[in-house]
Amino acid sequence: MRLLLTGAAYQLRLLRRSPGDLIALATTPLLTVVFLAVVEHNGRPDLAVNAVLAPALIALWGMSLLIAGDMIDAERATGTFEVLVATPARLWPLFTGRVLVVTVVSLLGLVESWLVATVVFGVPLRVAHPGLFAVTLLATVLAMSGHAGVMTSLFVLSRSARIFQNSLSFPFYVLGGVLVPVALLPAFLRPVSTVVFLSWSADLLRDSLRPAAPDSPVLRVGMVLGLGAAGAALSWWLLSVVLRRARRTGSIALGG
């Protein structure tokens, strides 16, 4: 737990030194403009909620994966990875704490998107179920931080994964029902997307902005948290594989 905080504190200091890392947040308002323009033009105000949430979720996913995927490479570049491995600290909480900070900061994307909608487009937005909204956001941040660590190890294990880093996100935007609800996806994709926590998060967030009473919210938040825990377990296991392999092959200082 304390290591989680240590990681978080470190990441905060880094962010303060180099706010350039937040560049992803620059595209969020632009995406919102594009999505909302389409929605408005077609006279579908009911879809404004989708248009506002999608860029925010894209920022969340993109920023978390970016930092997570880059973490070990950055430690190698500064020559600190070896020294880190030689400390008694467990690296998983340390790394996860760092991702957590970035994920929380990425929620600024939601604020941006919201501002674009209300100020630029004058779309009236109201959180119909504020409790559910808050709980879902929290669960989403946790699940995201748990999952992102998978990237940390994956990029170390396979150099070629990095080439796909950018394109890797798009299938998840589809499977995660970021803009288009999963229910509208082709039937064969639906089972796959039920194991993507983002699809549950996206649906819940949209529901919490709409007046209709949401369907079994507790179960669905539970799904977000459960899938998040599974992702965290996977990232924990992958990291231990990576560390063991690095100690054996001597690839800690060098590339993968």
């Binding site: 470190y10 200091r13 880094l14 030194r17 180099s18 500064t78 020559g79 600190t80 070896e82 020294v83 030689a86």
Partner: peptide
Amino acid sequence: IGIVLGGDRGLYGRL
């Protein structure tokens, strides 16, 4: 143990 590896690297320059 404490370890000091030689060379310029091994610290966080931005901190």
